[in-house]
Design a protein around this nucleic acid. Structure first.
Lengths: 183, 183
DNA sequence: GGGGCGTGTCAACAGCTGATGACTTAGACT
DNA sequence: AGTCTAAGTCATCAGCTGTTGACACGCCCC
């Protein structure tokens, strides 16, 4: 029998769920897969998380938040952005964390949270880089760029974008930031 | 019984499949849903498309290709790009066509086709807007931007980006294009 | 050392899903 | 009218999925 350690079991389930949901999406992930990855009995998912939806929400809540601190210096911002898009920044993830958000279930509370997370990131960019006409729309274009890069790198595997390092991205991103949010 | 018209039945199935796959993804779509939407018996899917995977590939093959003609004039390109991102450009689609590509199954031939489609779009941008160091990487950033905008507008519903018209997008996109692909 | 509780195991069910083969019927052609 | 084929219908199957209740076991405290 598995050693009795509720916290470790819960954590193993969360990590397995994070990987599966991120890679295969909500519908494409089965609870038996998650339980097997975690080396845990299927029934324990119900005990700890109640349901598949509960497991997904818990895994989502445990995932890192993006663009929490936006530097007001444009060069520093471009660098921070390219770092958050780099795979090396998320060594414990097989794919970029934002993919789990995009591959979520259709559950209303999840889609609402997703929209708020992305709109919030755009708002933080506006707050840091200063107001302007269309500033929010332009900041959302930056968020869209980040989402698109994450998808193309992590889920699609487009070359040479997938193999680009954070340093490779900083230059072009800096040019975009300067063009979109003029001082 | 349904009037006997193989071509119309096939077409109805294709359109229903396109809608379902685009909105709910491959795993989230059931063949019974598609058949019901098309007003067609479930067994006809097997007759006309062989399997669920066959139906998906047929629906994918019938979807429009993006960025087929890239104007070499930067202003015209920015305008073409913003038009392709506008919902009005795809009145027969509920969501942006590229979402079906992203929400595909894990089938190898589909993921390969997806990568080729996106890399091809980037290559066409390079061909039109001229070579430069990093030109392909920068073009792929433009493709990533397009994918991200489609996702945020159509699947997530981020405001104000979702409500922006093609004209609203042209200005900012022009700035990005100029910054990324300097003459 | 014996309850009692938290932890893990097991077996099963009800519903759905993709797939399939046998059957029926419309419509063209002779 | 008779026949043949394409088109559509029907019932059903085997497998998987999420969920669940009953059970077994280890560990702590009195």
């Amino acid at each position: 029998m598995r050693p009795r350690n509720a916290a470790a079991t819960r954590q193993a389930l969360l990590e397995a769920a994070r990987d599966r949901f991120t890679r295969a999406g909500y519908e494409g992930t089965t609870l038996r897969d998650v339980a097997a990855d975690a080396g845990v009995n299927l029934a324990l998912i119900k005990r700890y998380f109640g349901s598949k939806e509960g497991l997904f929400k818990a895994a989502l809540a445990a995932s890192p938040r993006l663009l929490t601190d936006v530097p007001s210096d444009r060069a520093a911002f471009a660098e921070a952005l390219s770092r958050q898009l780099s795979a090396d920044t998320w060594p414990e993830f097989g794919e970029h964390p934002v993919l789990m958000l995009l591959r979520a279930s259709g559950d209303e509370s999840v889609t609402a949270r997703r929209r708020e997370a992305l709109e919030g990131a755009a708002q933080r960019i506006v707050d840091a880089l200063g107001p302007a006409p269309d500033a929010l729309l332009r900041a959302e274009l930056l968020v869209a760029l980040g989402v698109g890069v994450a998808v193309l790198r992590s889920a699609v595997g487009v070359e040479p974008l997938s193999e680009a390092t954070a340093d490779d991205l900083t230059g072009p991103l800096r040019a975009i930031v300067d063009a979109l949010m003029p001082s």
